[in-house]
């Protein structure tokens, strides 16, 4: 192409506002919520205050936690003070950043390790233990706040969730027409084919289904769900009905993917995790947090629709991590 050729095929237009050929109005920006920021700010101020005490009054602080002040302990406490102030200033100037708060979590671990050493030569071990307990408590707050900030950044809207509830949103593109994806989803009894942990889904009539899922430690969880919206080839919404073990509501939307790639499936789940937010944060560390779970389930749905079944590997076909070698004959179904 010569440099003198015009670029693009659209003639210049001065009458309509969009300068580029976007998809027109209605495409919203992802915003994230502001959840967790107030807790983060509080922890930021706490950091600065504690840091100031450590820096300015290291000897008193050392005595307060049951140790005999020496030049060595003073240096350690003062350097911890510098660290506290650094992370505090970072958090206060970026209350939306989980990374600055994450520095506090790392700092808590360092503090605990140092207190563990201190306990060995403490004059008043009860005081040292008490200090450790305080660090543990604040550490838990730090972890929760970090998790909240991380989650807040994954929300497409400013809309706040109901307290105690979590929201998950995941999309996948599947190379099939909308009608096919909708049909498979509309028949909830298909779900055990691609949803890990769902043992059975039973149609009990009146738009209601009865679900049974594997819970922790060999238990099982059951609930009943009803369809609250059903627009053919567009969306399906459901929610658990009263008396269920867990509360959740969900919505799945089906849209044409660009460039003939098939269907974009978007799932939104609101749920109250058993054990609340802390349990959700802990679960996340062991991977099976709902966002991950929904993402994996959608990937299996894609496999069912595109290749007819869920692909197994030698290592993934068992229930626990195992080496990538063929399973013993008796375990293959």
């Amino acid at each position: 192409m010569s440099v003198n050729e015009p670029v693009g095929d659209a003639p210049h237009r001065f009458d309509s506002p969009p300068l580029t050929r976007g998809r027109g109005p209605g495409r919203e920006a992802w915003t994230g919520t502001t959840e967790g920021r107030s807790l983060a700010s509080m922890l930021g101020w706490f950091s600065v205050a504690l840091g100031a005490v450590e820096l300015l009054a290291p000897r008193s602080l050392t005595q307060a936690i049951g140790l005999r002040p020496s030049s060595g302990t003073t240096t350690v406490v003062q350097s911890m003070g510098v660290r506290e102030i650094a992370s505090g200033v970072g958090i206060l100037s970026h209350p939306e950043s989980k990374e600055w708060l994450g520095m506090r979590v790392g700092g808590d671990l360092v503090d605990l390790a140092l207190l563990g050493v201190a306990l060995l030569k403490s004059r008043r071990p009860m005081r040292t233990l008490l200090a450790s307990a305080v660090v543990l408590g604040v550490g838990a707050l730090d972890m929760i706040a970090t998790e909240q900030l991380a989650e807040a950044r994954k929300s497409p809207t400013r809309e706040r969730k109901t307290p105690g509830e979590s929201r998950v949103m995941r999309s996948i593109t599947i190379g099939c027409p909308r009608s096919e994806v909708y049909a498979l989803w509309r028949n909830f009894t298909n779900f055990p084919r691609f949803m890990e942990g769902i043992e059975s889904v039973e149609d009990v009539g009146n738009g209601r289904t009865r679900w049974r899922a594997r819970g922790p430690a060999g238990t099982s969880v059951e609930w009943e769900s009803e369809v609250v919206a059903d627009d053919r080839d567009e969306q399906i919404a459901w929610r658990s009905v009263g008396g269920s073990d867990i509360y959740h509501s969900g919505k799945v939307r089906f849209a044409d993917a660009p460039r003939g790639l098939g269907t974009v499936v978007t799932v939104e789940l609101d749920y109250a995790p058993p054990g609340g937010k802390i349990a959700a944060a802990l679960l996340k560390m062991f991977r099976k947090e709902p966002g991950q779970q929904v993402g994996d389930d959608l990937r299996r749905l894609k496999q069912v629709l595109e290749v007819g079944e869920v692909l197994l590997s030698d290592a993934s076909s068992g229930s626990t991590p195992r080496p990538a070698q063929p399973l013993p004959p008796e375990t293959v179904h």
Partner: peptide, 11 residues
């Protein structure tokens, strides 16, 4: 020595 592989999927 490990077990012989078996068919796990239809393809």
């Amino acid at each position: 020595d490990v077990p012989d592989p078996k068919l796990l999927n239809q393809h």
